[in-house]
Structure formats: structure tokens, C-alpha cells
């Protein structure tokens, strides 16, 4: 089971993920996220809220990498928040926390993208 909700904000997109971001769901996530970048038509940031994300695999990491690389040339950031359990471990083992900002709370994530 996987669900994503994308809220349009002045600074970019506030995305909350629920369930499993795996080989089955990652292509859909990537497609929707990239479509959201294209629709924005300007520099945008993404906050990915993992509070309700139970699971992520390398397929999920790959889709986040594609999004981050797509945003980078225009200065857009992908900020992660709400990580726990195996999701936090996977992000740590892969070193994604070394090149993506990780916020301790949702409030901190919104501060990083300049929303508050």
C-alpha cells in the first residue's frame, strides 16, 4: 500500500508519503513528483514528510535521487522530515542524509525551505 498527497505551497510542494515506497510504487511516485516539478514551471522546493512512511527500498531511494537531481540546477531542495525506524536506517546506510537536508521536525523542514 502506498499513498502520496501533494499540497501546492508558495515555496514548492509539501508531500506526505504513506505506506511502502518500494519497487512497485516508486515509479508512480517519481512520475507524479516530476510532473509536479514540470507543472510548477519555476524553482520549487519539496518537503517529503515520511511520518507515515513504513518502508523504503533502493527503488524508493532512486526515485528521490531523480527528483533531487531534477531540482538542483534551479536551486530547489528536497528536504526530508519525520523519519523513523527502517526508513531512517535506509536513508542513513545509503548516505542520502549527507546530501539531502534532514529536518528533525516538520517545522524545521518548513523553515529550511523558507516557508515560515
Amino acid at each position: 500500500m502506498f499513498e502520496m498527497k501533494i499540497a501546492v505551497e508558495s515555496w514548492g510542494r509539501d508531500v506526505s508519503l504513506t505506506g511502502r515506497l518500494d519497487a512497485g510504487s516508486a515509479p508512480d511516485f517519481e512520475k507524479e513528483a516530476i510532473a509536479a516539478v514540470d507543472a510548477a514551471g519555476e524553482s520549487v522546493h519539496f518537503v517529503l514528510d515520511f511520518t507515515n512512511l513504513e518502508y523504503i527500498s533502493s527503488a524508493g531511494l532512486r526515485s528521490i535521487l531523480v527528483l533531487a537531481k531534477r531540482l538542483a540546477p534551479s536551486g530547489g531542495k528536497v528536504v526530508l522530515c519525520g523519519m523513523s525506524g527502517v526508513v531512517e536506517e535506509v536513508i542513513g546506510v545509503s548516505g542520502f542524509d549527507s546530501f539531502l537536508p534532514v529536518a528533525g521536525s516538520r517545522g524545521d523542514a518548513l523553515r529550511i525551505v523558507g516557508a515560515v
Partner: peptide, 22 residues
């Protein structure tokens, strides 16, 4: 090399790395 910056990263090899670490 999981310490490289975004522009030098690709997703290759991450799956088996996760298997080895976990």
C-alpha cells in the same frame, strides 16, 4: 561511495549495500 555529493551520486549498488548492512 555513499559520501559523494548529489551531483556525483547514482543509485547503482545501493540495493546490495542495504542487504550487506542489514
Amino acid at each position: 561511495d555513499v559520501t559523494r555529493p548529489l551531483e556525483e551520486r547514482d543509485a547503482g549498488g545501493l540495493g546490495i549495500l542495504l542487504v550487506r548492512r542489514m
